[in-house]
Computed example of a mutant assay.
Amino acid sequence: MSPLLTKIVSGFALFCLVILIALLYEGVDRIVHARMQRRFGPPLLQPFYDVIKLLGKESIVPRRAVRAVFQASPWMAMALTLLIFLYIPIGSIPPILAGNGDIILILYLLAASAVMMVIGGFASGSPYANVGSQREMVLMMSYELPLALVVLTLAWLVYKRGVPGAPFSLETFVSVPVWNTVGLIGGMGIFALLLSLLGVVPAEVGKVPMDIAEAKTEILEGFLAEYSGRNLALFKLTFALRSLAMSALLVPLFFPFSLGKLFGLNGASFVLVDFIWFWVKVFLVQIVAITVVRTMYGRFKIWQASQFYWFQMGGLALAGMVLVTLDVMFF
């Protein structure tokens, strides 16, 4: 089998896997969220039922919608999100499309996916969707600041410490955990960066308290207001995949530790254990960054969210940058 064909087959298999895992994690998220509120919650497979049901329904296009854009947006949003997983190392398995700028490309794909959802909202011709799309744009401009500070600081750190590999490649962070490159001051800085990035996750994935763009009780699902049937199912899948992608991005950046190395494994057992361990870490990150947060807090107002990311999370990321810089320059 040629290398190109191998990558195509591997990519297709990976896409199927992450869709299943994303929906499974969504089911676990709902159950944990319900149990934290002393409710039973839906069945574990409820997200699968929801998507399958929507796929069987008719997709209605509003009369005022820009039909081609309205129909294409869900497909583009999901496709762009799926591409992210081609650049993320899974345990000891290297990414299918490894490169020197994986992190930059992943951030671009996340932003492009969100932009496609915004465009779909504007194309629907609904005033509710219009408001939701505007809110999403404001939110994107807010959380990009701490996100950029975190990524730039980590890349600069591995570059200054002489870690082998490209500074914007996830494989570089997997090979040498950033925690091993700093002292106490730098460790505090990395912890601040971690907290800042965890704070960005709810906004990136559209979960409470940052589900301002959908806000069911205010603007009737926002930019999703006019979507139904297959198109709505694709957007639901996109949200689940974005949650998985953001959690999966945090793992190689901050938690690349190998369980296989710890137990001295090798060969197939090493790959299998690290593969499972990777998804366990992703699950734990998702529980902490999404489930616990959306259970503890109510929805923010748009000005509160902007203020939160520009000042609190941006300030936290800036503090982390300063601490890491001090550690590199003077310790």
Rank of each mutant, 00 (worst) to 15 (best):
G222R: 11
Q46R: 13
A148Y: 11
V205A: 14
M313D: 01
L250C: 06
D50K: 09
M137F: 13
L80S: 10
E26L: 11
R242W: 09
L272H: 03
R35C: 00
V273Y: 08
M116Q: 08
D274K: 07
W310F: 14
M141W: 02
A225E: 12
F173C: 05
K281N: 13
E214K: 09
L220E: 02
L147T: 13
V201H: 12
P256S: 04
S73Y: 12
A317I: 01
I8Q: 03
G189F: 12
S113L: 00
F270W: 11
I276F: 14
P252R: 01
I302H: 08
R30V: 07
S126D: 15
D327L: 07
N130M: 11
R299N: 06
G229H: 04
V138M: 14
L244Q: 04
K216F: 14
P252S: 08
G315Y: 00
P42Q: 07
S142E: 06
A289T: 09
Y108I: 10
Y309E: 01
I219Y: 10
F173P: 01
S247C: 12
L149R: 05
F330V: 11
W277S: 08
V322T: 01
Y25M: 11
N231M: 12
F12A: 15
L23D: 05
M140F: 14
L154C: 10
